[in-house]
Design a protein around this nucleic acid. Structure first.
Lengths: 156, 156
DNA sequence: GCCAACTCGTTGCGTGTACAACTATCTTAG
DNA sequence: CTAAGATAGTTGTACACGCAACGAGTTGGC
């Protein structure tokens, strides 16, 4: 899924410029190639799918290494049901554990296990190297900052 | 699926800078939000999924409004089998047609039908407006050009 | 010319995801 | 205090996608 290029049919206003369309195309193409490549590398070298890694990182960053299902779903940009199944798999692999929230018996915390922490520690250098090699290395420091600023304008 | 943030574990070299990581996070988040939003809008207002739109645009741009399966798969960044199924659906909807390549009897052309062209003409303003409203509008002309240049460095 | 190697597109299968409906729990208005 | 509504997470179901294997067709070395 990716291109959605201009089909020339100029209307009154609010039509993207040619530069905008070039940026949009480059954006989509870059995303597709980067996620595919980084995902393949991570899985090949560490056996960890990108979605698993993503969950582990968010838990590792959270205070207490635990997060509520809903919050985690928001963090990894997944639907609630999608996260339920993903956490099922991570639980089965022993990398995270579910524990009930005593203050709200509807809620569930997802907590990083020791095995999960170790697994993340092992995978992290591989993925970071990949990010640098396939993404960061193409930009100077100021360029990376500019990129973050520009893309950061797309919010919520 | 999305974050893959830094888990601080500094190694010798080739570790992404903080600016790179900010850019990477912003990139992933922007992509997730934009594709979701644009896809929802397009489907709600025109009944056309983004993947369908993408195919139609590429055919409309191709000479003769036709493309070989493999080339089309490359253009829309989909696997061969994924494209086979997608084209199945578009055929069933009457928006494209398959026709054999007389010069290579293994090959198949996918061709835009009149209905497909009309459907694309109707959907295109909606999607372009969306691109401008959710993406282009956040950038000045030079910024969009810079973005295209920077992202364009991620190749192949 | 012929067989091996390659290419094109499709199919079987497994997987990951979203949506909607559901259960259990919490919150709030009256 | 209770009933109505909101919220947390799970489950049923459908679907889109990739990978590997396949059948048909093409190409190149000998």
């Amino acid at each position: 899924m990716c291109n959605y290029l201009v089909y020339h049919h100029r209307m009154a206003n609010s039509i993207p410029s040619a530069a905008t369309m070039r940026a949009w195309r480059a954006f989509l193409e870059a995303h597709s190639r980067l996620t595919t490549r980084l995902g393949d590398e991570l899985e090949a070298e560490t056996g960890l799918p990108l979605s698993w890694y993503d969950v582990l990182v968010h838990l590792a960053e959270a205070t207490g290494n635990r997060l509520r299902m809903t919050d985690l779903a928001g963090a990894v940009l997944l639907s609630k049901s999608g996260l339920t199944r993903l956490v099922d798999r991570l639980c089965a692999a022993g990398l995270v554990a579910r524990c009930p929230d005593p203050d709200d018996r509807r809620g569930t915390f997802v907590e990083l296990t020791e095995a999960g922490r170790n697994r993340l520690r092992a995978a992290s250098p591989v993925h970071l190297r990949g990010i640098e090699e396939h993404f960061g290395r193409h930009f100077t420091g100021p360029e990376a900052t500019a990129l973050a600023t520009l893309l950061g304008r797309i919010q919520r």
